[in-house]
């Protein structure tokens, strides 16, 4: 059995006065792809932020590669865990290549010079997401989809062991959604890294994830292999909406039954 990349023990999350989850237990191993599902406001983003140390859990413990989160400093953590955030705020001007290079921040040794190695990794990351031709462009001039791909490229330049993705399909058209996530999963697997992605898109999760955590409205959760969790009854209860499943070839397609 391989070493656990991340373990979560009896985690309780609270945002303001609202309890999001309690007694959450989770173990993510190397090379796995986990989906994080749940209704709006169920606490998906907060859970991802907690793994990155950006939100302090009310109780419980999170460990990365056997080391408790509190004992890892930010930079070490950033070498292990990288996150794609939902929002990529506009800011002062920057070019595409400059932005991807920021992904190398936790690894860079020298203060004043950029290493050839880092530049090479950044360029490869751009190529992986079809952005090599745009490397000199201003970020502000990119389309929403190009920006999302840029954020993904910056994330793989970071080379984390665990990729946290908050709505990775945002701003991507249907063709790019599957292509970009496919690329990301391939790169992660080559490094035996793992993915943990929060998404609203059950079908995307069904297609890409081998495991699922489903956050329920009452603060409970269910987790396990995707085929065990992605079932009509379970999803219907979680989303408080009748959800049906269509099967075609190897694909499962979930859709909500029309509201009467």
């Amino acid at each position: 059995m391989s070493e656990a990349l991340m373990t979560i023990d009896s985690l309780e999350l609270q945002l303001g006065s609202k309890r999001l989850c309690r007694n959450l237990n989770l173990r993510i191993d190397q090379g796995q792809t986990w989906g994080l599902l749940g209704r709006n406001g169920a606490g998906k983003t907060t859970l991802l932020h907690s793994i990155l140390g950006l939100h302090h859990p009310k109780a419980g413990n999170i460990a990365i590669a056997g080391q408790s989160l509190e004992s890892i400093n930010r930079r070490q953590l950033a070498m292990q865990v990288g996150m794609l955030f939902q929002e990529n705020p506009d800011s002062l001007p920057a070019t595409v290549l400059e932005t991807v290079m920021l992904g190398r921040h936790p690894h860079s040794q020298s203060i004043l010079t950029d290493s050839e190695q880092d530049l090479g990794i950044a360029r490869k990351a751009l190529e992986a997401f079809d952005l090599a031709g745009l490397s000199g462009r201003q970020v502000q001039s990119l389309s929403g989809g190009e920006r999302q791909r840029l954020a993904l490229a910056m994330l793989i330049a970071q080379q984390p062991r665990l990729y946290l993705l908050d709505e990775p399909s945002n701003h991507l058209d249907i063709a790019f959604q599957t292509r970009m996530l496919g690329i990301l999963r391939r790169i992660a697997r080559e490094d035996s890294a793992s993915l943990f992605m929060a998404t609203h898109d059950i079908n995307l999760a069904a297609r890409f994830c081998d495991h699922i955590v489903l956050m329920l409205p009452d603060g409970e959760h269910r987790s396990g292999p995707a085929e065990e969790i992605l079932q009509e009854e379970i999803l219907s209860a979680a989303y408080d909406c009748r959800i049906r499943q269509l099967k075609k070839d190897d694909l499962a397609l979930f859709y909500p039954e029309e509201a009467s």
Binding site: G53, E87, G103
Partner: peptide
């Protein structure tokens, strides 16, 4: 410059 969340995610205290 890319935002506080992104910076924290990249290891900045």
């Amino acid at each position: 410059v890319r935002g506080e969340l992104v910076a924290a995610g990249l290891g900045v205290n």
